[in-house]
């Protein structure tokens, strides 16, 4: 692999997970540059990240939420000339050994964006709450209908982008608390080629998930509304990209 690739790791209060996340990334993809985006954590994430020996640590002075943090990483990757970018959660739920698998369709020029999906192949029961599974199912139906393509795992944050998608998203990434499903629609609407690859995910290693079961319903309604709004907008004009 010769193209310059960046692994973007958004973190919010992940001091416990950063060392192991960085270690697995260095082990499995040593040639890639690791970019940690610290979304104004209230714990020692900043210090731990700085000591982790990565390519860059982007410390946000205000908390922007996952969307704003990811966009910061995308801007960094775009401006520093990276050809490929991988979004990799700082909580350790994604597996670094799957990164090459995620990049394969992009390198074969079959896709602009690849989503690491927990569901697009046989899976041995992803454990989650009832409402969360219901939401995932709902996103699958709505998003697939809206962009006329099967997207089984709309909430997966494990994604790979080529330069074209990178330059588009660096400017237009949804700045929302839970941007993943909205991002799928945005990309689909703007005729980016999306592909899914089956990836297993780890259960959380530490810290607290950003979505508690109680908030699931509220989250679903909010995201559904945002998705409908994105779907109702016309695609971004070529000259504005």
């Amino acid at each position: 692999m010769s193209a310059k690739a960046a692994v973007l790791v958004p973190c919010f209060n992940e001091e416990e997970n950063i060392p192991s996340v960085v270690a697995t990334l260095k082990k499995h993809v040593p040639e890639m540059d690791i970019i940690i985006i610290n979304d104004c954590s209230t714990d020692h994430t900043a210090a731990v990240a700085a000591a982790a020996g990565v390519k860059a640590v982007l410390d946000l002075p205000c908390n922007l939420g996952i969307g704003g943090a990811v966009q910061t990483g995308l801007k960094y990757a775009y401006r520093n000339g990276y050809e490929l970018a991988i979004k990799f959660d700082g909580d350790g739920q994604h597996k670094a050994e799957n990164i090459q698998k995620l990049l394969a369709p992009i390198e074969a020029n079959e896709a602009d964006v690849v989503i690491g999906s927990r569901f697009c192949a046989k899976h041995d029961g992803f454990k989650s709450t009832f409402f969360r599974r219901l939401g995932i199912r709902l996103f699958f139906l709505v998003n697939s209908a809206l962009i006329r393509q099967m997207i089984t795992d709309n909430t997966s944050g494990f994604r790979a982008y080529n330069r074209r998608a990178l330059s588009f998203l660096a400017r237009r990434y949804p700045s929302f608390d839970y941007p993943e499903p909205e991002e799928v629609i945005l990309l689909g609407k703007n005729s980016f080629r999306i592909k899914e690859v089956f990836t297993e995910m780890n259960p959380r290693q530490g810290g607290v998930s950003s979505i508690s079961p109680v908030k699931s319903i509220y989250y679903m309604i909010k995201v559904m509304f945002a998705i409908c709004m994105v779907a109702m907008r016309p695609p971004v004009k070529q000259e504005d990209r």
Partner: peptide, 20 residues
């Protein structure tokens, strides 16, 4: 809000560049 987001992002990118 959009402007604050942009400024926050630029600030972090500049800080990183300056450190380098």
């Amino acid at each position: 809000t959009e402007r604050i987001k942009e400024l926050t992002q630029e600030l972090s990118l500049l800080a990183e560049k300056m450190a380098r």
